[in-house]
Design a protein around this nucleic acid. Structure first.
Lengths: 257, 257
DNA sequence: CCATCTTTGTGCACGCGTTCACAAAGACAT
DNA sequence: ATGTCTTTGTGAACGCGTGCACAAAGATGG
């Protein structure tokens, strides 16, 4: 998973465990697919398979929301879609601003999955004056000088940061000061925020490194009981591994340099 | 966190807990920054603050790697950078292919943070014949017909999927059959893979939904002991929340529709 | 060489998350 | 109405992850 929550000591918000909340969107997606195929009901076993989780876990997750199933039958798909949507707050309209309209910011702005989930791109903001007014995904980019006004005028409470790492904390501070209380951070930096503000981060670089770890382990085990030539084992010189790597990416894990 | 591992029942690979592995890249980033500032040593307290974690947790994490610190002094920055890099397998060269060169795929291809971590974009692959030969980030896009040959010729073991959801499983199957054993999935689908293959997923839509949940909770609590007007509480009609949402995004959470 | 001070490395306890296994609940047939 | 069969909802056990608190280790100064 390319995510990792920052802060928040796993507070059980209103009785629903954090781990369960993180899986609800997964269930919702599977249920939406079933709904489109006009499937009326689904068992915990089937739905769990579709979502890629253990069926007991799924049942326990749902039990935190209430008793929405029928024993001997399963769950009503439409009803469950509604209940989960409501629980996640997707029956509300959530205006979102994206700050930093580089390659990634543009990709995010173009994402069509926002609207269908109650998320609406209220504004695109960039620090580059040359970008101002230029439409991206049909929305004109606004200059960051107007950040506070944009947040307040649109009642934005969720901000997406897709700026270079160097600018992220400053942008974050301004977003928070202007009233944003939830932040999705794509910049490769640890953001510091006051209590009451949620930060989630997405970092491709970290995900790849985790994969590399397991990949190395697999190659090592394989080499242990066969020959030693790994798949692409062009081992780099080991003694200067730390010396030759450039500055830590100053841009989000997904932006061009 | 925009990430979530799929599969893998938290196997303690070679004694290093999964949770620790997930934090190593974080430490590495903080250490690299210190290294650039020519800081020779750092205490667990300082480094923990920079990485945004508890210092006891950091020390315990490092203890799984070995005793690399000096009591009364701290950790040697350069040495630790090297040890973590080696542990994560970043002293190797990891050729990576990106499949699906849409808006997101292009953003990934342009990401400069690859090379500095031992990752090298070996090829860009897309199913659209019109894309073939067109250079993206200086690398010519190749047609997916040649996928297997590209994987094998380059000894690729890590694949990135940035295709629409509908194509993801098929692409995944072909990647795995061709020898890929680690996959980073940006498509909003649950991928099924054989044992021995690692999948990590990045899903913006899920991250936003998790933020929305907490945001709603915060607004609710606030309303409970003040007035009822939330920040942007334009509540949508509740009865048809499930009916009016379009088909589940058939494209990665970050691609244009 | 000894005392003091700093910082690591870790034993221990606690809590969350996962999974098993089963009793309770309801559908359905007769 | 009664019995059977399916599937939910959950009690309980277990294991992992976290954080406290402290002993061990080493640096530093006299």
């Amino acid at each position: 998973m390319a995510t990792g929550r920052t802060h928040r000591p796993a507070t059980r918000s209103r009785g629903i465990p954090e781990a369960t909340v993180a899986r609800l969107p997964l269930y919702l997606r599977a249920l939406t697919a079933l709904s489109e195929r006009s499937v009326p009901t689904v068992s915990s076993e089937e739905l769990a398979a579709a979502a890629g989780v253990n069926s007991a876990k799924l049942r326990k997750d749902f039990s935190y929301l209430g008793s929405y199933g029928t024993r001997g039958v399963g769950y009503d798909v439409e009803y469950l879609v509604y209940q989960i949507s409501r629980e996640l707050g997707l029956t509300q309209d959530w205006p979102v601003v994206i700050v930093g309209i580089g390659n990634l910011g543009a990709a995010l702005a173009n994402y069509g999955g926002f609207a269908s989930r109650g998320f609406r791109v209220a504004a695109l903001i960039d620090a580059d004056p040359a970008m101002a007014g230029k439409p991206v995904a049909g929305i004109p980019v606004q200059h960051s000088d107007d950040l506070e006004k944009i947040i307040q005028d649109n009642g934005v409470s969720i901000g997406v940061i897709a700026t270079p790492a160097g600018a992220a904390q400053a942008v974050c501070d301004r977003l928070v000061a202007a009233g944003v209380t939830s932040i999705l951070n794509f910049a490769p930096t640890v953001l510091t925020v006051p209590d009451g503000v949620d930060v989630r981060k997405v970092d491709l670089s970290i995900e790849l490194q985790i994969l590399a770890f397991h990949e190395q382990r697999k190659a090592g085990e394989e080499a242990a009981h066969s020959d030693g030539t790994g798949p692409a084992a062009v081992t780099r010189e080991e003694s200067d591994a730390s010396a030759d790597q450039g500055p830590d990416g100053d841009v989000p894990a997904v932006m061009p340099a």
